[in-house]
């Protein structure tokens, strides 16, 4: 199947970027969120990203205009479900809300429409099971920011068909991204492999082997990592970090994934990293 029209549900941090990438690649896109305010905020972010690109000479004014012209913003789920080939869901990471959304979409969408979830760690198979189209249900996990990160992780659910996988792989390539297919398992691949990266760094800190700064420096100077594990956790937010780690640990139940005490303590203290000014590091008042 060839995808021609795409509907992105959710205009937030990930949703607006996904809609932009699809529109920039020439697709007709519907971007839907719950209120006018949320939809406009998403559109505003896209406009800003594109006008920055124009100023930097990375995008022509004509391309920026036509990209915006291909995005229809709406608060109506019916409008997003109508005349589309693919739904990309990018709402909050909450299984019940996602299931509820997919149940509705399953009623509203034509049978050929593929459902893709941008979840970072929730089960694709579990979401697919509430619809009548588990073979046309798949994961499409984008990375932040979607405009710049090249990977799209594609977890296939238990019943996802080969045709659906092939369609999404092909689409990812046409969007200029690198697709990588994997099984539907907790944390998929990237977040699963990042757990030991973060956890070992935290264990080293707890064992007093080295300071936070020295641990990060070791990875950057020693191996060319762009950011160290601890500054990365602070950057993402320790509350978010802990929630993700708990999901993977609860599913896989192995000590290597177990949230480390230093992370739990910081979160209990309300030190969430950059956004609160304190985490593994202390940040100046900006």
């Amino acid at each position: 199947m060839t995808v021609e029209r795409i509907s992105v549900i959710g205009a937030g941090l990930m949703g607006h970027g996904i809609a932009q990438v699809c529109a920039q690649a020439g697709y007709q896109v519907v971007m839907r969120d719950l209120s006018e305010e949320l939809v406009n905020k998403g559109l505003e972010r896209i406009r800003k990203f594109l006008s920055d690109g124009v100023h930097k000479g990375k995008v022509s004014q004509a391309d920026a205009d036509s990209t915006l012209g291909r995005i229809l913003a709406t608060t109506s789920l019916e409008e997003a479900a109508r005349d589309t080939d693919l739904i990309i869901e990018a709402i909050v990471e909450d299984m019940e809300q996602k299931k509820q959304l997919f149940r509705e979409l399953d009623r509203l969408c034509a049978p050929h429409v593929i459902f893709a979830s941008n979840t970072s760690y929730l089960s694709i198979t579990e979401m697919a099971a509430v619809t009548g189209r588990p073979d046309r249900f798949i994961g499409m996990h984008w990375f932040n920011p979607p405009q710049l990160m090249r990977l799209i992780e594609i977890p296939r659910g238990q019943d996802t068909s080969e045709e659906t996988v092939a369609t999404i792989v092909e689409l990812a390539k046409r969007l200029g991204k690198v697709p990588a297919v994997c099984s539907d398992s907790p944390g998929f691949i990237v977040n699963r492999l990042l757990q030991p990266f973060y956890n070992e760094a935290m264990s080293l800190l707890e064992e007093g082997v080295a300071s936070a700064q020295d641990i990060d420096t070791a990875l950057k100077a020693g191996g060319g990592f762009r950011m160290g594990p601890l500054e990365l956790r602070d950057f993402v937010g320790l509350d978010t970090a802990l929630r993700g780690t708990e999901v993977i640990y609860n599913a896989l139940r192995h000590d290597k994934f177990k949230p480390r005490q230093c992370l739990i303590r910081l979160v209990k203290a309300g030190h969430y990293g950059r956004k609160t000014g304190r985490g593994f590091y202390t940040y100046g008042q900006e």
């Binding site: 990375f143 990160m149 090249r150 990977l151 992780e153 690198v178 990588a180 297919v181 994997c182 691949i189 990237v190 492999l193 990042l194 990266f197 191996g223 060319g224 990592f225 762009r226 950011m227």
Partner: peptide, 14 residues
């Protein structure tokens, strides 16, 4: 796929 995921999804140098 494992290698390309970490390079393009997590900015690993390799």
């Amino acid at each position: 796929e494992i290698d390309s995921m970490m390079k393009y999804g997590a900015n690993f140098p390799m």
